[in-house]
Design a protein around this nucleic acid. Structure first.
Lengths: 189, 189
DNA sequence: CCTACCGATCGGTAGG
DNA sequence: CCTACCGATCGGTAGG
């Protein structure tokens, strides 16, 4: 049993926040998960709010990295969209606590922090938006479609996955990617 | 200033729960909104949890009523889907506090209540599922589409609306209905 | 990372 | 619906 690091605390906080929400988590709950007292957490971090910021930032970073990896490779819009969908689902399922906290606990952040995170979210949404616009410009996607709304729709489908997907269920991860890709491409073409 | 009814309390609770969440709302906060003391609320209801149940039940009932109104009218699957989309958006925007609480605070319910509400949600989802299956059977919707997943996707798009739609924004309600309908029908056909 | 606390706030009750 | 509380729990600190 060695001492915990700040990262250990942030990871533990992510798990709690994802399951019980920010307001549903006490520092004593979190301490119990980590095997220390609630008051001991304060030797690693400044406060509960700082912990939420750290978790949400990790979540945002995972999504951004996935998107920039996809956008770095030159590919037709359809393939880029497939990559964005696969990447998003990967983050959602591999980094579930951070992803979920990022998606559901943003309005527990202080005003300034919430604004910063929402800007990051808008940038990420931009990856989907640009891909759709490129598809329209190249004539492979329908023209009678508002790309800004379409980007929101695609992300809505993706983000909801975390609420219903069961890793032990009948559908594999790649089946989900394939089904969502077909649905989205069907809507866009 | 006449005395408040139980319904007044439930409506007020819906507003608070929708904005700050169940755990982010104290009985004193709620009392302040209503112009009474937190402790006075207990002359109308048994406890905070009972209040959440009442709000969430109202939310579920609004959606169910909208769906059964649509399904009561015989119509081709495409038109039925348009009705379900319009009805869902209507509830989401006209009953925003209850709808939002229903969509986001279910896991703050005690286990038995949560299960009951989730069954209601599944039934509601069934309206979308049946419509999609009918469309496939009649040959107007694509066959290579999992109707169970498609129903989830459509509801995912609809439910997310509450997070981004601005009543004062550039898009009218009927424009949203039309755009979502076109996206969904594009994906299903 | 623990001991020993702090003031504030929580959901809720008794009695009127 | 208010007064006057209750015990429990909250986020957080001082000092080691």
């Amino acid at each position: 049993m060695s001492r915990l690091t700040r990262d250990d605390i942030v990871v533990g906080a992510g798990r709690r926040f994802a399951t019980y929400g920010y307001h549903g988590t006490s520092m004593r709950d979190l301490g119990e998960d980590l095997g220390i007292l609630g008051s001991s957490i304060y030797s690693h971090i400044g406060g509960k709010q700082e912990l939420l910021v750290a978790v949400v930032e990790r979540g945002a970073a995972f999504f951004e990295e996935a998107a920039s990896t996809v956008l770095a490779i030159e590919a037709p819009p359809e393939e880029q969209m497939r990559g964005l969908i696969a990447g998003h689902i990967g983050v959602l399922l591999d980094q579930r606590p951070e992803a979920r906290t990022y998606l559901t606990q943003v309005d527990c952040l202080d005003k300034d922090e919430a604004e910063r995170i929402n800007k990051m979210r808008d940038e990420y949404e931009g990856a989907f938006y640009s891909t759709i616009v490129a598809g329209i410009d190249e004539g492979v996607f329908r023209e009678d479609c508002d790309p800004r709304l379409a980007a929101i729709y695609v992300l809505s489908i993706l983000n909801a996955l975390e609420r219903w997907y069961d890793e032990q269920g009948r559908l594999s991860r790649s089946e989900i990617v394939e089904d969502m890709y077909r649905f989205v491409i069907g809507a866009l073409t």
